[in-house]
Design a binder for these strands. Structure first.
Lengths: 346, 346
DNA sequence: CTGTTAGCGCGTTCAA
DNA sequence: TTGAACGCGCTAACAG
């Protein structure tokens, strides 16, 4: 057991020599597409490889073959359950295809996202998957599209998870329709006076959900007073802060507050609790996404279900399918309203 | 805009030609360590690279240099907030070092973990980080150590996050002490009759926490009746099921139930809620880990704080430091009892 | 400071 | 079926 502190890994060349065969034969035995190698040689090579603890060098394979087996995934924040659930789906799907997943975090910055895409291109991933809401009006947007186009032009597959609008294949969540359905259900539950907690105005996801919700209410002749729409970061703390703001204005005339994401809704619920406001007795709450913890908070959170892990899985499959070549394939996933204890029948 | 469907990416060679310089000069301008190239040439190269939308091929760089810039991270389940928080720390630390993170999921299977380590070696990552509790008694354990040793012998750095015991550098959480401190605090709160929800017997983390908790109680002459220790999977559903089991036996004589992880504790709380048991009025609950949602459930969960993101960050730093060469460096992170509303003073 | 050249580890054609 | 030789994109000596 006296290996030198830093020997180099055994190479295919070493294995070939150890097995007494040629480099080509070794290569064919270890990876070679079809069985075109004498079984005796084959065994010899396998044995030699095991003896030397050989592990193929993916980088070398990639240069030689001109293609890799990696999927690059960009998320806003991996600690956010929304993204980690999607990531789980991506990883699961990738692994069944023998693909390795590399991950990077944009921290919700479009500039950072651009940088990362640029950097990740160096990996020559087979697939690049971008999650997180698009925010328009950003100058980086055009540059991002250009960068992704350049990647796609050289054989890379790009898939976005969020909303359509960019010229790439996309797994789309119908935020508008989901929010509208939610509004309808809540009115059905007897709610009439609403407030809303949104994200930044430029965030398309936030906007779509707010619009859908408003339109759903409008069908019943209900409107949200502009003063009752507060905004915050698209995070738990953002929801907490927004709810606090809402409280400062007084919530006496509000039945239910709709937060555009579960994470924000849960932050809001904590703010209410700390202020001594009891949900749903004093005010009801609803969110969007149906993250795992939505059912574990008390009261359980009414929300719009999105099959998050499926989103990730479908993104991988879409990317690998030839449909992705068309560069504008769209998969639309269904949402579903989930009524829970945070918005009981009135 | 009529790029052929699948052109190949521009190579350094293309850039050099476009700029009218040699390959070496192009290489030096684009990456070359220090400024050893005439600024005019340099600009020409940069311009050419931009024009051709050049992106360096990491794989080729890796082959040429004999080293990569990737960190491989293995987690049990990325959708679990415990792991996703650690992953966030790993990614953050890696990115500041210009390293790319590749991630794989073991699904809590030791066999799968072994397979993945074997596969990931092909990446020749600079660092391999394994998180998740060790479970002893598994046959794969020895094979895993062998595989990791082989990796380390060829210059790879290995860091584990969990408990010591394996011959690699480790970021250790003092589960035993944390649980003992928790037990003491809870007795201080007035609790006397306890139940516990644990994971599989072979899971070291679960065992350590249970042991620490029991010893902490023992200091006060308190013991947990064996019938009041139930086990389940180390997941939310595992906690839910275990709590259900507990309920079936009757919890009339129990003040507080300690779950060995927050995720299980939260599952248990949901089970209680669905059974009409009110926490903490009917029974108090405590967990371990202090995941983000621990403060957002109602009542907020008493737990033992672990700086999860720091764990990941420190793992990367430990791996990169020369201390990791010694192969048995240990960083011990502090835990801290956090008393919340789920275990009020009696 | 620049260009030439020899590898890096591997896949794959092409003869044998 | 096997092996020799070339090339993948790039870095790092080495000479100029």
């Amino acid at each position: 057991m006296a290996a030198s502190p830093t020997a180099s890994p055994a190479t295919l060349h070493d294995v070939a020599r150890e097995a007494g065969v040629s480099l080509a034969t070794a290569s064919r035995s270890l990876n070679g597409s079809t069985r075109k190698v004498n079984d005796e040689y084959r065994q010899r090579v396998l044995a030699a490889a095991a003896r030397l603890n050989y592990s193929p060098n993916f980088s070398a394979q990639a240069v030689a073959k001109g293609s890799t087996s990696t999927v690059a995934l960009l998320v806003s924040d991996i600690a956010d359950p929304y993204f980690s659930s999607i990531a789980a789906g991506v990883i699961r799907a990738a692994e069944t295809q023998g693909l390795i997943v590399t991950m990077a975090v944009t921290e919700r910055s479009t500039e950072r996202e651009l940088e990362l895409v640029r950097a990740l291109r160096g990996q020559r991933p087979r697939v690049m998957i971008l999650t997180g809401s698009r925010s328009d009006g950003s100058e980086s947007q055009a540059a991002l599209v250009a960068e992704l186009k350049a990647f796609a032009a050289t054989g890379g597959r790009v898939v976005l998870i969020s909303q359509e609008g960019l010229p790439f294949s996309t797994v789309v969540v119908d935020n508008y329709l989901g929010a509208r359905a939610l509004a309808n259900s809540l009115v059905g539950q007897g709610y009439r006076r609403f407030a809303a907690i949104g994200g930044a105005r430029t965030l398309v996801t936030s906007r779509d959900r707010l619009a859908g919700f408003a339109d759903g209410l409008a069908e019943h002749g209900i409107a949200i007073h502009p003063d009752h729409i507060v905004r915050g970061e698209f995070t738990r703390d953002g929801g907490f802060a927004a709810a606090t703001e809402l409280l400062a204005d007084g919530i006496g005339q509000i039945d239910l507050v709709f937060a555009v994401s579960d994470v924000m809704a849960i932050g809001a619920m904590s703010a209410f609790r700390e202020a001594g406001i009891v949900v749903p007795r004093d005010i009801a709450v609803a969110g969007f996404d149906d993250i795992d913890t939505a059912r574990d908070v008390t009261p359980a959170l009414t929300t719009v279900h999105i099959p998050l892990a499926d989103l990730g899985q479908q993104a991988v499959e879409l990317a690998l399918s030839d449909a992705a070549l068309s560069s504008d394939e769209v998969i639309r996933v269904e949402t579903r309203v989930v009524l829970r204890a945070s918005s009981p029948q009135l």
